[in-house]
């Protein structure tokens, strides 16, 4: 658990089902993007689902192969696959280009340490702000 989302105090993410819906803020952002873009009609949810199935299927086959060779199956991290499925769909649809995404990732990785920290924290808790509804 990273320090950027401490689970105690008033800023703790809301619990549901007795467990967190999203285990890290970026997972919520990934879900919000994937679902939000579908709701805006940029693609059908099933198109996203197809990429997700492909991602998860590939993980399963790879894990089985590793186990068959006597290795230890890698840990399944659902939202890693979810994010990759989103990335694949956006690149396939030419919504984003791999090159620009790579460049942006690099820019963010090269930020002075601590920059993304405050930003991510604030974002993660936007739902605690006042709403008009």
């Amino acid at each position: 658990m990273s320090a950027e989302f401490a689970l105690d105090g008033a800023a703790a993410p809301p619990m549901q089902n007795g467990e967190l819906v999203f285990e890290a803020p970026w997972q919520g952002r990934a879900f919000g993007m994937a679902r939000g873009m579908a709701e805006r009609g940029l693609y059908a949810w099933d198109d996203f689902r197809d990429r997700l199935i492909a991602e998860i299927g590939a993980f399963g086959r790879n894990a089985e192969a590793i186990v068959r060779r006597g290795g230890v199956a890698p840990e399944f991290r659902y939202y890693d696959h979810f994010l990759r499925a989103l990335e694949t769909l956006l690149v396939e649809r030419a919504v984003i280009v791999r090159g620009e995404l790579g460049a942006r990732v690099q820019t963010f990785e090269e930020r002075p340490h601590g920059h993304d920290h405050a930003h991510g924290h604030e974002r993660a808790h936007d739902h605690d702000h006042d709403h008009d509804d």
């Binding site: 993007m33 995404l101 990732v105």
Partner: peptide, 14 residues
Amino acid sequence: SAPAIRAEAIESLL
């Protein structure tokens, strides 16, 4: 690269 950074990069582009 870490998924948190990749998600942030995708979001900023979108």
